[in-house]
Every structure is written in C-alpha cells, then in structure tokens.
C-alpha cells in the first residue's frame, strides 16, 4: 500500500514536471491551445501500470496544482474539463480492450474537445468553433504519439518491476 502511494506520488511529481517543462518551453505550434501535452504520457502510463483510481488522482492533482501555480481560474476550468472528458473516454476505451495507442488517441481528442467546450460555454462565443477541426486533428496526433511513448515506458517499467 505504502509502496503504491509513493509510486503514485512519483508519477504525480513527474506529471507536474512535464507540465512545467511545457509551460516554460512551449512547443509552439503557432496555435493557441495546441500543446503536445507530454504530462499525458504519465497519465496514460499510470492508467496501465496502476489503474483507474491512481490515474484519475494523478490527473486531478496535476491539473489543480498547475492551475494554481501557473494559471488562473479560467485556465483551471479549461484544463479540468479536458482532463475529465479525456479520462472518462480513456477508461471506457481501456475496458473495451483497445490498444494503449488507441486509448491514448481517444484521450488526446477528448482532452481538446473538453477544453474547447469549456471555452465555448465560458466565452459565450461561437468564434472558437473555428478551432475545432485543428484541435481534433492535433489531439489525435499528439494522442497517438503519447500512446507510443507510454507503451514503451510501460514495457520498461515492467522490466524494472516498478
């Protein structure tokens, strides 16, 4: 039990570091809102290594702390909506026995959908709809990439029995 908690803590810290790296060195795609979301590598890996509870925990703590440290209430709401939708989608897809890459891709797409829906409701502006196709595609691509990385990470962790 204690071991599990410390592992989860390590993962949370890692997710925070990844978020921090991305906040400091934005991998700029020239489109506001489009990020690789490398912190999701940790979430996807946790989902497979540990389980649903841990992945949800890490994700929420990360969103909350990063929002507190670097964002404002609005960005926190955006991230949270993205995280919730993405987690729900990933958990369902994992239950449906999708591959880790597929799960991650679904998570990537839904993360962006969640964020954009929140923006739509908060801003009460339909102008953001313009971004939808871009964000769906970018979510898919980053999701696949993250899935590939998470799969490799998972293999390595397994070897070390982490």
């Amino acid at each position: 039990m204690a071991k599990q908690i410390s592992k989860t803590a390590v993962f949370t810290a890692l997710a925070m570091i990844f978020s921090y790296i991305e906040a400091v060195i934005p991998f700029n795609f020239g489109i506001p809102g489009v990020k690789i979301g490398i912190a999701n590598i940790v979430i996807v890996t946790a989902l497979y290594r540990f389980g649903v509870k841990e992945a949800v925990g890490i994700s929420f703590i990360r969103v909350f702390l990063i929002g507190l440290l670097f964002g404002n209430i609005v960005s926190l709401v955006y991230s949270f909506s993205g995280a919730v939708l993405s987690l729900i989608g990933m958990i369902i897809c994992k239950k449906l026995k999708l591959s880790i890459i597929g799960v991650s891709a679904v998570g990537g797409v839904l993360h962006n959908t969640g964020q954009l829906s929140a923006a739509l409701i908060i801003l009460q502006s339909t102008a953001v709809t313009y971004y939808l196709p871009v964000l769906l595609v970018s979510g898919l691509i980053t999701g696949i990439l993250i899935g590939i990385v998470a799969r490799q990470t998972n293999k390595i962790l397994k070897k070390f029995n982490f």
Partner: peptide, 17 residues
C-alpha cells in the same frame, strides 16, 4: 505519424489566424 504531422499541421497553418 511524423509524415502525418508535417502534412496535417502544414494544412492547418495555412488557415490559421
């Protein structure tokens, strides 16, 4: 995937404001 990225982001850039 990398080819896809270059290709797809290439398109979306064109319509970016």
């Amino acid at each position: 995937t990398f080819i896809l990225i270059i290709f797809l982001t290439g398109c979306s850039f064109g319509s970016y404001s």
